[in-house]
Every structure is written in structure tokens, then in C-alpha cells.
Design a protein around this nucleic acid. Structure first.
Length: 449
RNA sequence: GUGGUUGUAGCUCAGUUGGUUAGAGCGCCGGAUUGUGGUUCCGGAGGUCGCCGGUUCGAGACCGGUCUUCCACCCCA
């Protein structure tokens, strides 16, 4: 049979892994710098742990795992008879692949709250799965890098997370825009327009402002049954660019005012520190995940057209569905795949992410090959990675192999070298060749690498 | 999940209204150069035309299905 790979998934070769490790370690180092500790949770969770947390669309995108054994005999007969797929799922699938890292984290916190010290800060770098239709920068399996803190409603954490975004993207040498908003501010717009009941309809439409423009947003709100008067109020609200205009705009909007106060506090914390990326207040930022309740964040590249490369926010009620209320959390996520694609497109990966060895030994005859193997052992024991071409093939073939693998240094071992214990090393980039005496070989090599 | 799009050599792509042995560039392999890659010259290998079925005397081309790619919607990292 012909081997194929599943739609929306990718293999990662040695070079890919090196580059991904660069991203992960950069992110991880910053997380640890801010006092977050690692956590891993299983790929699979109880389906009921996952369902209902991401809205109806989210549930539809959950990968369900078929029960083992004779699952059909236990299937809901009515649903089976009526070909009711949704009704059937509960009786034939009890497990699902995780959709994000936040919900499993909430589950973990509730299960382990007795052993945790709050505020509890953790980071998590693991793959998640979504049964979405794949596109560029959009996969069925992808890694998320999450940092969250639960057990504190301090707005200092919102500021800290913005700073983490700033630090990571600066270290990755990327230019980004960090957008910040607050769900309560959005709610305040709804309050002011008198459409609290249609808050969700409003935010879904508003979220598309960047993409489809004001007119289409108004059309969409109208289609969702929002009155013309309310729409004009909403449009007036989203024209606001400066948070100091919010108090004057909000009329009879206590929640909105609370959102304003929160934003003001977060931004004032951030004013006191240096931010290298562009931080903007974007009142149209809404974000789809239904569990956000306060501050919301999103990061986009300023250099490459791509979806968001990070997002997050505060969620007050997430743990309550697992039976634990009054545990506020706030967190952000980095989209490793998209960051990867952005770095690749901009050719911004450091050179040392090349998956190669710094040195290869080429041998001219069987005796030299044996000598090379022995010499390589000495070089390796000094901590220098190296490779030995496995047969005394033609020099041209061996050189081509070294060049093809982008190996910067080549050592040629022949009869002369074995006799004299002086090895000629060729620097591939320049073609320059120097003779290294065996007694200072290691030092000389270290100097060349 | 809805609508559309893509698939020909390792890669990028040609292939005229269906008609004989499906081409190019790059790459790869060999030689010129029996201890030296990237330049040049010469030679060579490599394709069940994504897969399955149909129409036809004849299909890379037309039709249906399927997988894959990408795009829009939806949503999102």
C-alpha cells in the first residue's frame, strides 16, 4: 500500500524538530523566568470533561474516540435507528482528544486543589486536536504553549502575561501587535445600547470588524436581530480608540465601567515597564471562546499575514463546571505552528537550528577508515559532535555528501595523515584547508567550530 | 460542517478541440578529474499522469466517486 499522512497533520524531520525546539525552549525559558512550572495532562479526556466548554462549534470540532469492544451492542438503539449521529455519540464514545490545554488544566486544578498553593502558576506545551477543515496555518493537530495562573483575581497577572508575550516575541526577533480588550467593556457597549440579551450576537459580529469592515458588521448585527438604533450605538462604541473615552460613552453601564477600571489598572501596571512590542487597545477584539469574562488578549504578526499567533484572557467561571467556584484564572497561549510558519517565511530561524554536525571525517582507504573511527571517538569524548563517512569511497562522493548535509568542517584522513598524525581540515564555506597537529587537535577544532 | 480549488519525474511546471514511444528546467547518478564539494562539458536513470470506477475504437485530458492541497464561510493557534 501507498503510505499517506492524515489531512491536517504533518511529519517533522530533523531540521523541523530543531527549529521547533528553538521556539519551545525560548517560550519555556521565559515562562520559567516568570515563575511558572511545567504540567502535562493526557491526550485523551472523558468526553464529558471536554464537551460544552467551547460552545456548539467547539463541540463539533472535538475528535471523539470510539469505544473499544462491542460498542454497537451498547449503542443507544433509538439514535442508531434514526441515524442521529449526535445522539449516538454519547453511547459509543466516552473519550475525546483534548481541544485545548485550558480545560484539562481546570480539571487538574479542581482535582488537585488540596495539594496546590494558590495562586498556582503553570505552563503546558503539548499538542491539541481540532477536527477543523485544514488551511494554511491551520492544522488538525498542533501544539499549544499555555501559561495560566489560577486562584487570584489580581490584575497584575494580566500585566505579567502581556509582558511575557512581549518578552517571547522580542526574543524570537518578531514584530507583533499585542491587542488588549476586556469582555466587560464589550458588555458595557451592549448595556449602553440596551441589548444585553444579544451580547453574544454582538460580539460575534464585532470580532469580524478587522476582516469585513464596519458596514458588513452592521449588516450582520441586523441579521441577528439587533435594532438599528442599537447598532448605531454599538458602532459609536467601537469607534473608541482610547480607553479614556469609555466613561463618557457608557451610560447606565456598571459592568462596562468595571471593565474600564480593569483595563486602566492593567495598562497602568504596564506603563511602568518597558514594552518592546506594540501594545494596543482594540475595542473590537472579542475572541470566540465562551469562557472568557474579563481581560482578553490577542497577538498578530505585523510582518506576515497569518491568523493570530497567540491569544488568551481571564476566565472567572471555568472551574465552576467542575464543582469549584470562586477560582479565577487568567492565561495565554502561543500558537507554535503559526509562529513556526512566520519564522520560516521571514527566514528568521537562527543558523544553529540547522540539523547537522559541525565536522565529518572522510577516509581514503580501509586503514584510514579504521583510524578515523578511532579518532572520532577521541573528538567525541572531548564533547565535539562529529560523523564518520562509513566507507573509503571516492573523495568526490564523500565531499558531495558533506556539502549536501551542510557540514561546515571536513577532515581528510589518508595514508599521509595516519603516518604524520597531522590532519588536514577543510573549511567548506571558504575552501580553505589547514593542517592540524594531533597534540593540539581538540583545541584547534574547538577554535574552528 | 457548507461552497469552491488543486494533484503530471525528487522539486517547479508544460502537455493545443480526447489520437502513436508524456516533455522542459532544476536536482539526482556516472564520466571528463584513481586525495577534495559548490563552476563547466558529456552521458544516464527516473512517471501505474493522486486513487477507484465510468464514457470511448482510443483518456493525462471528458464524467462520477474518493483522498489530498489551498481558498472563502464558520471558528480559531
Amino acid at each position: 500500500m501507498k503510505p499517506t499522512i492524515l489531512k491536517g497533520t504533518r511529519d517533522f524531520g530533523p531540521q523541523d524538530i530543531k527549529r521547533r525546539e528553538y521556539i519551545f525552549s525560548t517560550i519555556k525559558n521565559v515562562f520559567e523566568l516568570y515563575g511558572y512550572g511545567p504540567l502535562e495532562t493526557p491526550s485523551m479526556e472523558h468526553l464529558h470533561t471536554l464537551t460544552g466548554k467551547y460552545g456548539d462549534e467547539g463541540d463539533a470540532l472535538l475528535f471523539k474516540v470510539l469505544n473499544n469492544g462491542d460498542f454497537l451492542s451498547k449503542a443507544n438503539p433509538e439514535a442508531l435507528e434514526n441515524k442521529d449521529s449526535n445522539g449516538l455519540v454519547a453511547s459509543i464514545s466516552k473519550r475525546g482528544l483534548r481541544y485545548d490545554l485550558t480545560v484539562p488544566f481546570a480539571r487538574f486544578v479542581v482535582m488537585n486543589h488540596h495539594a496546590l498553593k494558590f495562586p498556582f502558576k503553570r505552563y503546558q506545551i503539548q499538542p491539541v486536536w481540532r477536527a477543523d477543515r485544514p488551511q494554511k496555518g491551520r492544522y488538525n493537530e498542533f501544539y499549544q504553549c499555555d501559561v495560566d495562573v489560577v486562584g487570584s483575581s489580581s490584575l497584575l497577572y494580566e500585566a505579567e502575561l502581556v509582558k511575557i508575550y512581549d518578552e517571547v516575541f522580542t526574543r524570537l526577533n518578531l514584530s507583533t501587535q499585542i491587542k488588549v480588550n476586556n469582555r466587560k467593556v464589550l458588555y458595557g457597549i451592549a448595556e449602553t445600547a440596551g441589548i444585553e440579551a444579544q451580547f453574544v450576537d454582538m460580539t460575534v459580529a464585532l470580532d469580524k470588524l478587522d476582516k469585513i469592515g464596519e458596514e458588513k458588521v452592521a449588516e450582520e448585527m441586523e441579521r441577528r436581530g439587533i435594532s438599528k438604533e442599537a447598532i448605531s450605538k454599538v458602532l459609536a462604541g467601537i469607534a473608541i480608540k482610547d480607553i479614556e473615552q469609555l466613561p463618557a460613552f457608557f451610560t447606565n453601564a456598571p459592568t462596562g465601567m468595571k471593565g474600564y477600571e480593569e483595563l486602566k489598572q492593567v495598562l497602568s501596571y504596564l506603563n511602568a515597564v518597558e514594552i518592546k512590542q506594540e501594545l494596543v487597545f482594540d475595542i473590537s477584539l472579542a475572541r470566540g471562546l465562551s469562557y472568557y469574562t474579563g481581560c482578553i488578549l490577542e497577538v498578530v504578526s505585523k510582518e506576515v499575514k497569518m491568523g493570530s499567533i497567540g491569544g488568551g484572557g481571564r476566565y472567572d467561571d471555568l472551574t465552576s463546571v467542575f464543582g469549584m467556584s470562586d477560582l479565577s484564572g487568567v492565561g495565554i497561549s502561543f500558537g507554535a505552528e503559526r509562529i513556526y510558519d512566520v519564522l520560516l517565511e521571514l527566514d528568521r530561524f537562527p543558523e544553529d537550528t540547522d540539523a547537522t554536525v559541525p565536522l565529518i571525517l572522510l577516509s581514503l582507504d580501509a586503514a584510514a577508515l579504521a583510524h578515523s573511527f578511532n579518532l572520532a571517538a577521541t573528538i567525541r569524548s572531548a564533547g565535539i559532535p562529529c560523523d564518520v563517512y562509513p566507507e573509503p569511497a571516492k573523495m568526490k562522493k564523500q565531499m558531495k555528501y558533506a556539502a549536501g548535509r551542510n557540514i561546515p568542517l571536513v577532515m581528510i584522513i589518508g595514508e599521509e595523515e595516519v603516518q604524520s598524525k597531522t590532519y588536514s581540515v577543510k573549511i567548506m564555506e571558504t575552501g580553505e584547508q589547514t593542517a592540524l597537529s594531533s597534540d593540539i587537535l581538540i583545541e584547534s577544532l574547538k577554535a574552528l567550530i
